[in-house]
Simulated assay, not measured.
Amino acid sequence: MGSRRRWVAIGAALGLVACGIAATIAWQAGLWGLLTGAILVSLWLAALNYSTVVRPRGAAAPIVSAGADAQAIVLRVLLDAAPTPLLGIEGTTGRALNRAARQLFATDDHVLPLPTELADPCATHLRHEGRSWRIDRVTVTGGGDVAALIDIEQEERVAEARATADLIQVLGHELLNGLSPIVSLADSGAAAIERPVVDIDLLREILGTLSRRAEGLQRFTEGYRALARLPAPTRALVRLREMADDLARLFIGRWPAASLSIEVADDLCWPLDRDQLDQAIWALLQNAAEAADSDTDARVTLRMYITATGLTIEIEDAGAGVPPDAATRIFRPFHTTKPDGTGIGLSLARQIALAHGGTLTLQSHAPTRFRLTLS
């Protein structure tokens, strides 16, 4: 029994050290969710260590080593310095466990009065001091909860900053890729004109290539503008079969060699922005048609149906499918594997779905099936 306790204590101690390292890295990187998780796991390990090592009540007091004391001090310092407010909650009583919590609630110990959301074990969000917080709870040994308050606005700012940095990087990359050959072709054209005998065929070829590159850059810029300036949807009740039939006529005119199957009930209606949904579904149909076009079985299916959660729209093709390693990148703005693609279609379709309170996901790799949901 003593050996088992010793190994449990050693495992808990190693876990605390690992949590301390993870918390330090998370703090430096601004990963507050990871930091909170490391702290909560540390608390659980500390409680496990205490319940395992300390003798039952009535027995002689255990001998605490100097290493355990140092470990407890490090844990308390780390807990107190954590930027995430942590509170211990038992029923309607709350205590501030670290400096961030004491500053937030202007207290040295008990939080008086305890906000209703913190006393409610089912509550997940709190509005306090003009800021929105997410409540992450964990039940500790001996009863009660430890609640970590995650600053939602701070998370949003960090995510926005990262998204902006990624967008700037993509824009810079695409613009340079588009401008570099244009500059090179312009220099070649100028050099061709300076020759004693102007080669008209060469000059025509240079200008034609220059025109195509400029048009490609223009399409990219227009796609970015469409993605960045998507207006709020204006919803109206739409007969979905009528919308699907209109898209089918356009599809047949654009891809006569492919077959499009429509699976939509005649009486199905749903409130949506038809212009935006036409654009989103068309982008998915275009993606499906181009994928199926290279296959001998060029079939595309468009189906719409209503579930308990809302309207579901699925577009499926019989093409080669999306490689698993590319599944996480296909919705990124400007990501494309097509020579003349802009990488806007799927990203814009997802933005339209989100604006309607829905989602756009890749449900199946082979055959490829996209699912767009609206609430």
Results as ranks from 00 to 15, higher is better:
Leu207Trp: 01
Ala47Trp: 10
Ser347Cys: 01
Leu34Gly: 11
Leu203Trp: 06
Ile182Cys: 13
Ala22Ile: 15
Ala161Trp: 13
Ala61Cys: 04
Val74Ser: 08
Gly15His: 01
Gln351Pro: 03
Thr164Leu: 13
Ala226Cys: 04
Tyr305Arg: 08
Val17Ala: 13
Ile89Tyr: 04
Ser132Arg: 15
Pro85Gly: 05
Leu48Ile: 07
Asp246His: 10
Arg213Gln: 15
Pro56Trp: 00
Leu16Met: 08
Ile330Asn: 06
Ala283Trp: 02
Val300Gly: 00
Trp44Phe: 04
Ala22Leu: 15
Arg204Lys: 15
Tyr224Ser: 14
Phe251Ala: 09
Thr373Asn: 00
Ala82Ile: 06
Ser211Glu: 12
Asp245Ala: 12
Ala289Met: 08
Pro271Phe: 05
Ile206Asp: 02
Ser42Gly: 03
Ala119Trp: 04
Arg303Asp: 09
Pro333Leu: 04
Asp266Asn: 14
Gly345Pro: 00
Tyr305Cys: 13
Thr368Ala: 06
Val41Asp: 01
Arg213Lys: 15
Thr312Cys: 10
Arg239Val: 02
Ala22Lys: 14
Phe105Asp: 08
Ile252Pro: 02
Ala327His: 04
Phe331Gly: 05
Leu362Tyr: 00
Leu240Phe: 07
Thr92Gln: 14
Ala292Lys: 13
Ala29Ile: 03
Leu45Pro: 04
Trp27Phe: 07
Leu97Met: 08
Arg5Met: 06
Ala101Cys: 09
Gly189Tyr: 10
Thr361Val: 11
Ser51Gly: 00
Leu35Gln: 11
Gly2Asn: 11
Thr107Trp: 01
Leu227Arg: 02
Leu227Met: 09
Arg134Met: 13
His365Arg: 01
Ile262Ala: 00
His335Met: 02
Ala232Asp: 06
Leu40Gly: 02
Gly319His: 01
Gly142Trp: 08
Ile10Ala: 15
Ile306Thr: 02
Asp246Ser: 12
Thr107Pro: 10
Arg157Glu: 13
Asp267His: 10
Arg369Gly: 05
Gly357Ile: 06
Phe251Asp: 06
Ala82Asn: 05
Leu114Arg: 11
Arg157Phe: 15
Arg137Lys: 05
Thr328Asn: 01
Leu16Ile: 12
Ala366Cys: 08
Ala214Gln: 10
Ser364Glu: 06
Ile135Lys: 05
Leu86Cys: 09
Gly130Phe: 14
Phe105Cys: 07
Leu48Phe: 03
Leu374Trp: 01
Ala283Thr: 03
Val74Gly: 00
Ala23Ser: 09
Gly321Val: 06
Trp270Lys: 05
Thr139Asn: 09
Ala101Thr: 03
Leu175Trp: 15
Leu302Lys: 04
Ala257Gln: 04
Ile200Asn: 09
Ala70Asn: 07
Gln103Tyr: 11
Leu114Phe: 13
Leu240Arg: 10
Ser132Met: 11
Ala355Trp: 04
Thr234Tyr: 07
Leu185Phe: 12
Ala159Phe: 13
Ile135Ala: 12
Leu97Tyr: 03
Leu268Asp: 09
Asn98Pro: 00
Ala353Gly: 00
Leu40Trp: 02
Gly142Lys: 14
